[in-house]
Design a protein around this nucleic acid. Structure first.
Lengths: 215, 215
DNA sequence: TAAAAAATCAAATGCGCATTTGAATTTATG
DNA sequence: CATAAATTCAAATGCGCATTTGATTTTTTA
């Protein structure tokens, strides 16, 4: 019904990965329980052990699964051409990031968010492999936008400013309904508007730092 | 030795609060264990139950304890006069926030940070009481800086941009040493420089949005 | 289609940790 | 000083949850 050309066993495995990535994103590694994951996946409690050996491996594979599923939906470069200006390419990346974090069905960054607050170290290797390249590309773009005179520190600070704004969306989404951090639902749910805001806010910040550096 | 005019029992209670706020800040509610807290506090495992009834109450009281200890060290208004410009007052608040979050011995925001990633709801009431007023003051300042024509949504977005940058410091501090998010130690440890960066970056962002709104 | 391998299942095991207990010790009271 | 109350303590209890087990069912192989 759901999938063609997959065995029953593969289907169980995929249901586990789907349920696990959602629940790990929602609760983090520690607070997620195998029982709940299996229940949502309509699988037996022992199936995690059978298909993935243990919870830790399931966690790693769930992140990989979520990340790969999002790849085509959210191109890291924002789908822009190479001949666009550095500002345009940076804007594309920011918008892609914000939209991805705002997507209720994108779990890889929600899991990273939890991981940054409560590190398990279980994702260190795969994040190094999958995320660091994008990080370095962002650094290069920032260097272009800030001018070649920009210091390494300025680049890192601007990167922190941008990523901080992006992750703030996850934080607010998560706190929805919990005082005192709730926002009006309408403001939070308009992801596109927030993405435009972050772009405008950040480009202005970068320009201010660039013009100060030029002196 | 440590405190005058406090009974042995009060001293135990204070040692528990001190250890608990540090450990809750480091590990969050769920991953903190009573055993570790009591060990660090040189108190018996049953002392939490005796002095605070349970772990949940200890959590709440630890946040209150940490928050009150930081009050005089980090005035929310940044210690500025009322006659300073809105931009100056906003800058003061931002710097105070960043310095507080960067302070290794300030736990109240580190606990909030954990709480936002893994809400327990146990702090909802006290945060409403203690944090929301400061939040509203920040909104008022932003309204001044953005001009009276600014929409509620623009104010909320700018608030998110600023708070996101501040909390990013906590995130990075926490991930120190864990790939791929580590920064050069020197860049992170210079809290004052990062505070100045956030001020400059944010004021420029706000100005850009203000001038766009004026049209 | 029969035997072997793979996959699912309900129930058991074991461990970590919050909480409780009741005895021992210290501090306050009259 | 004697008695009561408050505080500390080591050990026990109990629960939630990851993991294991061994039996049962389903799928693959020849």
């Amino acid at each position: 019904m759901t999938n063609l050309k997959t065995t029953k066993s593969e289907q169980t495995r995929n249901r586990l990965l789907t349920a696990a990535s959602r629940i790990f994103a929602e609760k983090g590694f520690q607070e997620a329980t195998i029982a709940e994951i299996c229940e949502q996946a309509k699988a037996n409690i022992a199936s995690v052990n059978y298909h993935f050996r243990d919870k830790e491996t399931l966690y790693l594979e769930s992140w990989r699964f979520a990340f790969n599923q999002e790849l085509d939906l959210y191109p890291p470069d924002g789908g822009l051409m190479d001949d666009a200006s550095a500002e345009q390419r940076l804007a594309g990346r920011i918008k892609s990031l914000v939209r991805r974090m705002g997507d209720e069905n994108s779990y890889s960054f929600a899991i990273i968010h939890k991981e940054m607050a409560q590190p398990t170290r279980l994702l260190a290797d795969i994040l190094e492999k999958e995320i660091n390249p994008q990080r370095l590309q962002m650094f290069a773009l920032l260097k272009e936008c800030l001018g070649q005179a920009a210091s390494e520190r300025q680049i890192q600070y601007c990167h922190a400013s941008i990523m901080g704004q992006c992750f703030q969306l996850l934080r607010l989404k998560h706190m929805q309904g919990a005082r005192p951090f709730r926002s009006h639902p309408s403001d939070l749910s308009d992801i596109k508007a927030f993405a435009e805001h972050v772009v405008q806010f950040s480009l202005a910040g970068i320009q201010a730092i660039r013009s100060q550096t030029l002196n």
